[in-house]
């Protein structure tokens, strides 16, 4: 019997994206540029995170017309974001046939207490995390893929680095922990015990973990791979740069060959200016998207 929406089918989809780059796009034309550059998926959005930051107000799920345009334009998977806890935005995206939903802190949360119960859906979900507690809670809710939260729309890699290092360090600690220490570890992180047991048994997270939130250069993408990311999301970085086409290609190649420094140097030399960055310390606590999520 054929079974859809199983954990294996949903997590497997993310496994296929490993080593690849997922790019934010706001229309069909950008989606085609991303696909031609070798992106493994695109994230359909109304605005990239840096523009969401600039615009202020309430950021909601994307206009379905944009999602549909992007789905018609490319053959690679199409992802879209819904607000944290917004059951209906998620169901609408699922009904449209979106390939992956990002329950994202980039949008204004619809629920400040609860996340979606993601294992109820046939469509797979990706969620952001800063530490093992957030990672394990999202997995237990049914997320089939994780990404660092970083600090979206800043072009500043520092938060993504912090989150990737934190999660990987905590995974390593759990892997060597004795069984009788695990429950207290779960309590301390607010992490479901069963998920920590799974992490300990396999020595790694049960789903892939991509880097996101601040990737602005090919070197940034390669750095995140070096730190153990399974792949990279690029938000504002590509289409806020001087030459998106070249930039997109360079990010893809730097991600694949993240230890080929000569190549990365060559790629970076030919690029124009990267997006303008933001100092995280200049952002007030309420302006930090990473604080969203519970």
């Amino acid at each position: 019997m054929q079974q859809t929406g199983t954990e294996r089918v949903k997590r497997g989809m993310a496994e296929m994206q490993k080593g690849g780059v997922i790019m934010d796009v706001v229309n069909a034309e950008q989606a085609r540029v991303a696909e031609a550059a070798g992106a493994v998926a695109v994230m359909a959005l109304e605005r990239v995170p840096s523009d969401i930051r600039a615009a202020g107000g309430v950021a909601r799920a994307c206009d379905p017309r944009i999602v549909e345009d992007v789905m018609n334009a490319v053959s690679i998977p199409v992802m879209a974001k819904c607000r944290i806890g917004h059951i209906t935005e998620a169901r609408v995206l699922e009904a449209m046939g979106v390939d992956y939903i990002d329950e994202s802190e980039v949008l204004t949360p619809a629920d400040e207490v609860f996340h979606l119960k993601k294992d109820d859906y046939t469509v797979p979900f990706v969620c952001g995390c800063r530490n093992i507690g957030e990672a394990a809670r999202r997995i237990a809710e049914g997320a089939a893929m994780l990404r660092t939260k970083g600090e979206p729309g800043t072009g500043n890699i520092v938060e993504a680095v912090r989150h990737m290092r934190m999660v990987n360090q905590q995974v390593r600690q759990i892997a060597v922990m004795s069984d009788d220490e695990l429950m207290t570890e779960a309590k301390n992180h607010g992490a479901p015990y069963d998920i920590l047991k799974e992490i300990k048994a396999h020595g790694k997270l049960p789903v892939v973990n991509f880097a996101a939130g601040g990737v602005a250069t090919p070197q940034d993408a390669a750095l995140m791979m070096e730190l153990g990311a399974d792949g990279v999301f690029v938000g504002s970085g590509v289409f806020k740069s001087d030459n998106p086409e070249k930039f997109a290609k360079a990010i893809v190649e730097a991600t694949t060959h993240y230890q080929d420094y000569e190549l990365i140097g060559k790629l970076a030399k030919e690029l124009g200016t990267a997006m303008k960055g933001l100092d995280i310390n200049q952002l007030s606590l309420e302006d930090r998207m990473q604080e969203r999520g519970w």
Partner: peptide, 10 residues
């Protein structure tokens, strides 16, 4: 076989 929501195991 369709998009991701139609993906299956058998």
């Amino acid at each position: 076989f369709g998009r991701q929501v139609d993906s299956f195991e058998v």
